[in-house]
Amino acid sequence: MKLTTKQLTLCAVLTAMALALSYLENFFPLSLAIPIPGIKLGLANIVTVFALYALGPGQALLILLARCFLGAVFAGNMNALIFSLLGGVTAMLVMIGLSRLRKLSVYGVSVGGAAAHNCGQVAAAVLTLGNTAPLYYLPVLLGVSLFTGALTGLISACLFRALAHTDLMKG
C-alpha cells in the first residue's frame, strides 16, 4: 500500500491516539463493577471506527496492527498480543463488513465491533488456556458490549460532527 506523507502522518497520529486511549482506559476500571478478567470500555475502538471511514479499511488495519504490537511492547507483555490481535482483527473484519451496509449508522457498526472484539478475546483465552472455561463469560461480555459499543459509537459520532467541516481528511 502506497501512502502519501499526509496519510502516513495521519496514521501515526491515530496510532498514538489509540495507544493513549488504551492507557486512558485504565482509569475507568470496568472490571470493578463487573468482575470479569479483561473486561474494558474499548475506547481505542473509536480510532478504528474513525480510521475505517476516514481512511478506509487498509490503513485502519495498519493502525490497528501497529497499536496492538506497540501496546504489547509498552506493556512488556507479549502474551497480551494474541488477545488484542485476535480481538482487534475480529472487530475490524466485522466492522468492515457492517460499514459496507450503508443503512447502518456509526452506532450499529460500533456495537457490532465491540461484540466481535469480545468474541475474539474469548477465543484467544480459550486457545491460550486450552480450556473452555472462558466461554462462561461470553454471554455477559456480549451484553456489556452493547453499552461499550454504544458509548464508542456516541463518541465517534461526536468526532465526525466536529471534524466534518475541516479539510483534515481531504486529499
Binding site: Y53, A54, L55, G56, L98, S99, L101, K103, L104, S105, V106, Y107, G108, V109, V111, G112, A115, L138, P139, L142, G143, S145, L146, G149, G153, A157, F160, R161, L163, A164, M169, K170
Partner: peptide, 25 residues
C-alpha cells in the same frame, strides 16, 4: 473524508443490537 457514516442511530442499528442479544442469549 472518504465517506462519513450516518451519525444518528436508526432502526437498522437496532437490528445489530438484536443480533448481538440473540447471540448472547
Amino acid at each position: 473524508m472518504k465517506s462519513s457514516p450516518k451519525l444518528r442511530p436508526c432502526g437498522w442499528d437496532a437490528l445489530v443490537v438484536l443480533l448481538v442479544l440473540l447471540l448472547a442469549v
